[in-house]
């Protein structure tokens, strides 16, 4: 591993509260992000995701509680060193329209104290090397997003904060985006991905933090969240007409199949008891969106 801080906390939030006037944006949130970990931050618009990321960047100060990023308070003057090792991609990234892609990246590389020589490879990595000498004002949304990602990757950051990074990316680019994220994680970087589409994060993140109205309502691996949310798996199948009577406790679905919910450890037993004539057997596990809806309900 490249970094020596593997398994140590790179970002720590302690009882962080942020008020905007009298409105509560973030409410007593505790959060630890470790090196080599990719964490999804999920919540609807206004749940406090962007506010949390901005506090980690030191753009705004918490009203109460403390934020530590790479061992420093990000809003203190001394945080310049930590920011050198931090990558940030804002939601709907805005760049200077009159500069070209290459100039934009060179500007940010200089600010970070990085050699400009590596920029070409970086532009190739995100797939906009061909448009490097065009003005950013002529870029499509997807291209701006790629350039935004390129600037976040400058200098191999130890912590990456990506606010809604995949909005506006086409599926192929989304794929390559997650490949890049995976590489960085293997190198020991901490990655925080915020999203309102929980389903998209499945298989990409180690852990999901669910936010609702400024509160952290869940924090754990996706399997863990499933058991926490207590949504049971459902078994569905099509039975022959003669057999239907044997399954009195089962509900029938609109397409004429039978369905029932059960505990996870009952699944195997129930499947064994199904008749030979059973067709179209399905085990339905809650999708992330259902999980998310459950947590939202639980939090209200």
């Amino acid at each position: 591993m490249r970094h020596e801080f593997v398994n140590r906390d790179t970002i720590v939030l302690r009882a962080v509260t942020r008020l905007y006037g009298r409105q509560l944006a973030v409410d007593a949130v505790d959060l630890n992000l470790r090196a080599g970990e990719c964490v999804g931050l999920v919540g609807h618009n206004g749940a406090g995701k962007s506010t949390m990321i901005k506090m980690m960047l030191g753009l705004i100060r918490p009203t109460r509680g403390s934020v530590q990023v790479l061992g420093e308070d990000p809003s203190a003057g001394a945080a310049a060193a930590a920011r050198r090792e931090l990558g940030y991609l804002p939601e709907n990234v805005a760049l200077h329209p009159s500069l070209t892609g290459a100039e934009t990246l060179a500007f940010y590389a200089r600010l970070k104290g990085q050699p400009v020589a590596g920029n070409k490879a970086l532009l190739e990595r995100v797939g906009i090397a061909a448009a490097a000498d065009r003005r950013v004002g002529t870029y499509s949304k997807g291209m701006r997003q790629r350039l935004g990602l390129a600037q976040a990757l400058l200098g191999n950051p130890r912590a990456l904060l990506l606010d809604e990074p995949t909005t506006g990316l086409d599926p192929a680019l989304r794929q390559s985006f997650y490949e890049i994220v995976g590489e960085l994680r293997r190198d020991g970087a901490t990655i925080l991905l915020s999203s309102h589409a929980l389903a998209e994060l499945e298989g990409q993140v180690d852990r999901v933090v669910v936010m609702n109205r400024g509160r952290k309502v869940a924090d754990g691996g996706i399997a863990e969240l499933r058991s926490l949310a207590a949504i049971q798996p459902r078994i569905r199948f099509r039975a022959d007409g003669a057999e239907i009577d044997k399954f009195a406790g089962w509900a029938s679905t609109p397409d004429g199949r039978l369905e029932r919910a059960c505990a996870e450890d009952e699944v195997a037993a129930i499947l064994r008891e199904l008749p030979k004539s059973a067709r179209q057997i399905e085990i339905l596990r809650p999708t992330l969106d259902e999980l998310y809806a459950q947590f939202q309900k639980g939090a209200e």
Partner: peptide, 12 residues
Amino acid sequence: GTMALLLSYPVA
């Protein structure tokens, strides 16, 4: 929104 990005860099 360009200011938020700029201030995330090591710039006072």
